[in-house]
Design a protein around this nucleic acid. Structure first.
Lengths: 209, 209
DNA sequence: ATTATCTATAGATCTATAGATAATGC
DNA sequence: ATTATCTATAGATCTATAGATAATGC
C-alpha cells in the first residue's frame, strides 16, 4: 500500500514533509468544508497553514494534491473510529449493533468531512480518485467481516454472500445518509434515535431471513 | 409553487424564454456531467447551446442560474418516472415493489445526472439550494405515501410513523446508492439483481415487524 | 554549502457587460 | 420602433514558478 509519500517534493527532511503536510491538510479541510474546493484559493490555504504560497508548492505539486491529502486524512479518521468498535468483546447481534452505532457516531462527528468527499471525489484525477474509492471499499469490508461473523455464529438465518455484501454497502451508505440528508433528518431525529431505528431496520433482514 | 420563471430576463417573449432555456439546460447538462460545473465555462455552454455568450446572459443572470435550471430539470424527470409507477393497479407488497423498481430504474438511467446533483447542490446559493432539497423531499414523500397505503391495507405488521418516514428516506437513498457506488456495485450486480435484493432487504422490515 | 522559505509576478483564464447590429412586427 | 442577438473586451482572479533571501548544519 502506497502512501501520501507518492506526492513528489524537493524537501529532503522526511519528517518535516509530514509535519508541513499535516499543517496544510488541517488548514485546507476547514476551508474546503467552509467554501468548497473550487472557491478556496491556494493563497488562502497557504495563509491558513501559516506558510507562504511558494512554500506550499514545495510540499505539493498542485492544488489537487491538497484535495487528495485531505480526502486521505478524512478516511483514515473514519476507519480509526470504526476499527475501535471491532475490538469489542460482545457477540452476535449485539456486536453488529455496536459497530453500526460507532460508525454512525463517526459519521455524525465528521458530517462535513464526509460530505466533502461526496462532493469533491470527482474533482480528483483518476489515480487519486481510485485511491479514495479503495478507502471507501476498505471501510465497507469491515462491515462484510462483521456480518460474516454473525452468520457463522449460526444464531441467524442464512443469507447469501451477495446479500451480505450488499447489506455491508447499505450500512456504509446509511451512515453517510445522515450527513447528506442532515438538512431534513436532523429536524426529525436525534442521532441516537436515527441509529436505533436504522439498526432495527437493518437487523430485520437477519431476523426474517 | 414558483417556477424557473423566477430568474429574471429582459426577453419579453415568454415562450422564447422557455425554449431557449431548455436549449441551454440540454447543453449544460452534458457538459456538467462530463467535466463538472466548475470546469465548464459559460462560453462552452453558449457554444453547445448554439447561441452567443451575450445571448446566454439575456436568459440567465449568472452561471449559477444555469446550474439551478439543470438541477430543476433533472428532478422533474426523476419525479415523472416515479409518478408513473404510482398509477399501477396492483396492491400491497406488489405495488411497493413496483414503485421501488421503477424508481431504481430511473436512478439507473439518470445515474450521471443524480450524481451531478449530489456533487453540485452545495455550489448553489441558499435560495436555490433550498428548492433543490425541496424537490428531493417531494420524491421522498411519494414513498411515504406508498408505505402508508401498505400499512393501512392491514396486511402487515404495524410500524410507527417515524419508522415509515425513515424507510422512505432509505428507499430514496438506496436508489441513489446505485449511482454513487456504481464504480463498485456495477461490477458485482446487474441493476436487476440489485433491485431484487434491495427490495427483499427493504421488505424484510415489514414482514418481521 | 545546503536546505528551506519568501516575495513578486508571468501567464492564463473566465465571468459578465457595453455597445453595435440584425430581425421582427406594426 | 421594438425586441433579440452578436462581437469585443474590461476587469477580476488564480495557479504555479523564478529568483532572491534566510536558516541550518558541518
Amino acid at each position: 500500500m502506497k502512501n501520501p509519500g507518492d506526492i513528489p517534493t524537493q524537501i529532503k527532511d522526511r519528517e518535516l514533509v509530514d509535519q508541513r503536510r499535516m499543517q496544510i491538510v488541517d488548514a485546507a479541510v476547514g476551508l474546503f468544508v467552509d467554501k468548497g474546493f473550487h472557491r478556496t484559493t491556494t493563497r488562502e490555504i497557504a495563509a491558513a497553514a501559516g506558510i507562504s504560497i511558494g512554500l506550499l508548492y514545495e510540499y505539493v505539486t498542485s492544488k489537487e494534491d491538497v484535495l487528495y491529502l485531505v480526502c486521505e486524512a478524512i478516511h483514515k479518521e473514519v476507519e480509526k473510529g470504526v476499527s475501535e468498535a471491532l475490538q469489542s468483546k460482545t457477540q452476535g447481534y449485539q456486536k453488529l449493533a455496536e459497530i453500526i452505532r460507532e460508525y454512525f457516531l463517526v459519521c455524525h462527528r465528521m458530517s462535513d468531512h464526509i460530505l466533502l468527499i461526496y462532493q469533491e471525489t470527482r474533482t480528483l484525477s483518476s489515480p487519486w480518485r481510485r485511491r479514495v474509492l479503495e478507502n471507501e471499499l476498505r471501510i465497507t469490508e469491515i462491515f462484510v467481516k462483521a456480518l460474516e461473523e454473525l452468520v457463522k455464529s449460526n444464531q441467524i438465518s442464512n443469507l447469501s454472500p451477495r446479500m451480505i455484501n450488499l447489506i455491508a454497502h447499505n450500512i456504509a451508505v446509511l451512515g453517510h445518509m445522515w450527513t447528506f440528508r442532515r438538512w431534513s433528518l436532523s429536524h426529525q431525529y436525534s442521532i441516537e434515535e436515527y441509529t436505533k431505528l436504522q439498526t432495527e431496520f437493518i437487523l430485520a433482514k437477519f431476523k426474517a431471513g
